[in-house]
Every structure is written in C-alpha cells, then in structure tokens.
Amino acid sequence: MGVPFEALLPFGIIIGSFTVGGAGLWAVRKWDNEGKMPRWNKDKWDRQMMERDLRITGTKRGQSSNHEAPKGFELSNPWKIEKRIF
C-alpha cells in the first residue's frame, strides 16, 4: 500500500496554517513596533525605561543620545505641573 499520503495532507495544511498565521503575526507586530521585535518578559524597570524613552523621543522604541533633556522634562514625572492655588 505504501505510505498513504492522503492521511498526511491535513497535517501539511495544519503546519501551513500555523506557519502563515505565525508569520503574519510576526510581521504585524514587527511593523507595529517600528521594525523591531517586541520585548518580552518586561518587568517594572523595563516598563519605566520604555515610558521614559517614549517621553524623551516621542516614539515607543526610540532612543536618544542627546545630553540635553527636552522641554517638559524638568521634573521626572509625566504629569503637568499644577499651579498652586494659594
């Protein structure tokens, strides 16, 4: 009878669909993340640094080597400074 290739066809389709889906997800996530792969297993420090980068450069994964901090970075928090009432 030989190898019944008919029984192996569905496995090929399973492999193909998972590969296409995974590759599509890879492409979408990479495109969404400015051409870099997303970081994984981020802890609190990583998130804080990413948020700081976002505030400095304006993009999620951007990094800046400028030694002068941009405007609005005088205090190290993202909130606007409220005026004192009295």
Partner: peptide
C-alpha cells in the same frame, strides 16, 4: 491571525484523525 489558524487546524485535525 491567531484564532483563524487555530480554527482551521481544529477542522483539519478532525479530518486528519479520520484519515490516519
């Protein structure tokens, strides 16, 4: 992109079970 391949492969796992 995650759920459609999962559902397609669910369908083909049933057919591959019957064929195998």
């Amino acid at each position: 992109l995650v759920i459609v391949p999962a559902l397609i492969s669910v369908a083909f796992v049933t057919i591959s079970e019957r064929k195998v």
